[in-house]
Every structure is written in C-alpha cells, then in structure tokens.
Amino acid sequence: MPEVQELVKSLADKYGRKRENLLHILQGIVEQERYLSDVALTEVARELDMSAAQVYGTATFYTFLDTEPRGKYVIRICRTISCDMKGKNQIIQAIEDTLKIKLGETTQNKKFTLLETNCMGWCHEGPAMLINDQVYTNLSVDKAMDIVTDYVKNK
C-alpha cells in the first residue's frame, strides 16, 4: 500500500523521527485514515527505527488511536453518568436504528462506526456525542437522528 507509506513518510518529515514524535505521527495517520492498520504501524516502526511491538504497544494504550478498521465517521456517544441520566441509551438506540448497526460496529459501506466514550466535558449539555472532532450536545432522539441522517445524505 504505497499510499500509507507516503503518508507515514510525510508525517515523519513533518514531525521528526524521534520517539517523542511518535504520537504526533500516529495521530496524523488516524486523522487521515481513522485507524491504524498493521501496514501503517509497521511502516511507522520502520520509519522511526523502532520495534513494531513498541509502536503497537504505544498505540493500543490510547482510545483514540484505534487499531481496528473504523468508518469515515466515528460516532462516540458519552456513556458517563450525567449523559446516562439524560438518556444516552435512547440516543444510542436511535442511532443504531438509523444506521442499522450495533454499538461497536461499522456500517457495511465503511462510512460510520458507532462507539461509546467516557465523559467528554459537556455534562451540563448532555447527552453529548462526537462525530470525529465535531461535538454535538443537548441531544434528543429526534436531534440525533437528524444529525446522523444529514451525514448519511450529505457527507
């Protein structure tokens, strides 16, 4: 996959090839590809002259550095107590129904992945969710379905 190779090389050129640059590079890959494939991880190890185990071990520590295939849009719904009290379960249910997937799954067209996440700092406006970096708060079932449907149709 020469594409990933090029991406890793350009990120290493940009951030540097030292250990302290590793997270920047991994974050850069996730930003483009949404997850870290084995090919990408091996490539990073080669480029930074580290063992693949070290790279993998670091990546798997971080929730946002996914090593499993993810959709183009990763939806993360807050599961912590305030959002739970405000009905995050209904929101999850609504999105599951809209996208025809279960929590943790990716749609067949690889466009969406649905996940839960821990408190994301919007407890006063829960339930809250992230779609990639974008924040959505004060969700109702209708609002959540509208947002997701808009992504389905227009993005």
Binding site: R19, E20, N21, L23, L26, Y62, T63, F64, L65, N118
Partner: peptide
C-alpha cells in the same frame, strides 16, 4: 488521544515523550 490517566502529571510527561 483519549486517556484519562494522561491527566496525571507523570503520565502526561510520558505521553508527551511519545
């Protein structure tokens, strides 16, 4: 990158060191 423990100061240094 989504890890609560990285708010702990020494974990944060480790994370900043890659």
């Amino acid at each position: 990158s989504g890890a609560y423990i990285c708010g702990e100061e020494s974990a944060l240094f480790e994370s900043m060191e890659g």
